[in-house]
Amino acid sequence: MNRLLKRAFIAVLTGLLACGAFAADMRVALPDRPALVIPLPVGWRGQVRRAVPDLPPTIMLSSITEKNFTVMITPIWLRSADAKPLTPDSLRAMVAAAAQNARPQAVEADLPVRDLPGQGLFGAYFSATDKAPKPGEYRNLTQGMVAIGELHVGFTILSNGDAAAVNGPALQMLQSLRRD
């Protein structure tokens, strides 16, 4: 009976890991506005870096056990009440401009911008491979932005090795961002 329970537990755990389960929510307080809630994938940890209390923080995410990737998230809010939130088209244009800036250093000749839809948010991103990373630098880059109402969340995913293994859970996490 013990062996059967153990196998069932391992099967459930493997299923959770395979479908991109989230281990816990990381709640990041933002000055005078609702917090940003980041559902952390299993095996990931987060750290908030805030240089000045009233300015946007940078959230650094990484693996608990490995050092093969870093995800940086920066929530940016509108400064004035009359400023307009990004539209899907304006957000895509910003991401496309970032892709154009990355192109000279990329292996790929074309860096297509892909949509990143989510519940109550929209976003876009591109991916590139550095053709000549310096020692200690990451080879794979995925960069983009997500808009949740007036909150704009810029993100950068840096990795070595299999980019898809990091991008899959990271993009799923970004699609699941919410305000609290």
Rank of each mutant, 00 (worst) to 15 (best):
A29D: 14
A29Q: 10
A102V: 02
V12H: 10
Y138Q: 03
M145A: 13
R178Q: 14
K84D: 01
A96S: 08
P85F: 01
F69D: 07
L177C: 08
A128E: 04
P39D: 09
V166W: 01
R50M: 02
A170S: 12
I157G: 00
P41D: 08
S80E: 08
F155E: 07
Q172T: 14
T65G: 02
I76C: 01
I157F: 01
D32H: 10
G136Y: 00
G144S: 09
T65L: 06
R45Y: 11
L61G: 00
K134S: 12
P112E: 06
N101F: 10
G118T: 05
L16C: 15
P85R: 00
R3H: 09
R103E: 04
D115H: 01
M26F: 09
F126Q: 00
M1E: 06
G118P: 08
C19Q: 07
A81T: 15
A132N: 11
A81S: 13
T156N: 06
V12E: 08
R178I: 08
V52L: 13
N160Y: 05
P135D: 02
A11G: 07
P41E: 11
F126A: 00
Y138I: 02
C19M: 08
A102T: 04
G136N: 01
V52F: 10
L4T: 11
I64H: 05
L91H: 05
R27Y: 04
A51S: 14
Q143L: 03
A29R: 10
N140A: 11
G118K: 06
N68F: 14
L174N: 07
G154V: 01
V42F: 12
D82P: 01
G118W: 03
A98D: 12
R7F: 14
D25G: 14
P104M: 03
R179H: 09
D130L: 14
L78Y: 04
G136L: 04
N160K: 11
D32I: 02
V48H: 00
M145Q: 12
N2E: 13
L13S: 02
D115E: 11
D32G: 03
